[in-house]
Nucleic acid binder design. Structure first.
Lengths: 207, 207
DNA sequence: CCATGTGAACAAATTCACAGCA
DNA sequence: TGCTGTGAATTTGTTCACATGG
């Protein structure tokens, strides 16, 4: 590793993709792979794979390639997937409840340990084993569960207030699905995913 | 406009963001906005806004700025949002049904006109007014409804086969939510969204 | 040998800075 | 005057090509 430089969002995104490819290879029983083979199989660029990985250390063996499982493990560690990240979901509508089921179905690093909503009809209901509690309990839940990640799946009008509440409650990162540009509070890493934007991009390609 | 050059994915993504910002401004009753004001309000870059927009024509008035509604309309047209894109959903699990409800809740360009699943328990059920039919009926549904867009929300093992089925049925664009790298069939625009990748990126930022 | 890791060459994207127009 | 639209400068990202080492 060469002094933990800044990692570009593009590289970060590709690290996740490499991990997905490696898992797929591992599932097929492949133990070693060269950047070239990987590039051909998954429509990537061989030199880019090498450049991306080289930022974090020397993972390959010259003349041979990369050990699939070893590299996989190393990437998981880089992406913090070898640690558990307790997650709370704010807003249990269609998307919120789908995400709870999605995240808890796969036994992965992000598991949902709490959920809140302000709709009386939803409070008290359990989704994939997670009890939906009133929005006022948010800070309490974050404290009780040591939740690190907050998932925002509330309507856009409510997004900023709930974001601020998450930050105030001491959450360490936020994943926002509300279609709005949040005003950041502090230095909390925040990732916004606007499903409508993906569809709109497709709309352009259709035109 | 200057001879319809290639539009970079980054620019395309930002066009969607600009549209979101303009709608928000319009909702606040703002009628005119300068690139600078917009940049400050939404944490964007003023010169980048101008560069991006200038690719498609001269939308602004020097000394004044942009007409919010006019630019909004123009962007919608660029993104093909002034046309209707009938959409079919393949796979009506958590995410699939959430997307059906999501897309049909907002009266927007993408509305779901059909859905298929291969689970007997789901076939015959209606989700937000959309009847779930057997997977075998896919080609028929695409033909009946003139569906342009296919949304893939099936488990990863089934994704490639269903993708191929969509393409064979004559779909014009595919939105894939299965966490797999699809092998493209033909020149069909295809956009993949892997929710796990967004979480993994957040994992890195937490580490 | 063969494939990695890397500096050097190239390409793309962003920012700067200002001419030109309402 | 004030803000757009745009070439030029800069930064960032990608590809190339090869020295290096298992």
């Amino acid at each position: 590793m060469k002094g933990d430089r800044h990692v570009s969002p593009l590289t970060l995104h590709r690290l996740s993709i490499y991990l997905r490819c490696l898992r797929s290879l591992s599932g097929e029983g492949v133990t070693t792979v060269s950047s070239q083979t990987m590039a051909e199989s998954f429509e990537l660029s061989a030199s880019q794979i090498r450049k991306d990985l080289a930022q974090f250390g020397e993972f390959g063996i010259r003349g041979v390639g990369y050990d699939v499982d070893q590299l996989s493990t190393r990437l998981q560690s880089l992406l913090g997937l070898d640690r558990h990240h307790p997650t709370v979901v704010v807003g249990t509508g269609n998307l919120g409840s789908a995400l709870i089921r999605f995240l808890n179905a796969q036994k992965a690093a992000f598991s949902v340990v709490g959920a809140v909503d302000n709709d009386q009809d939803k409070i008290g209901v359990s989704i994939a084993g997670v009890l939906v509690r009133p929005a006022e309990d948010l800070a309490e839940i974050v404290a009780e569960t040591s939740a690190e990640v907050g998932v925002l799946t509330v309507p856009s009008q409510a997004a900023q207030a709930n974001y601020d509440a998450l930050v105030a409650a001491g959450i360490r990162a936020v994943m926002n699905f509300a279609p709005i540009r949040l005003r950041r509070a502090g230095q909390i890493p925040t990732r916004s995913v606007d499903l409508r934007i993906f569809f709109e991009e497709l709309g352009f390609l259709l035109a």
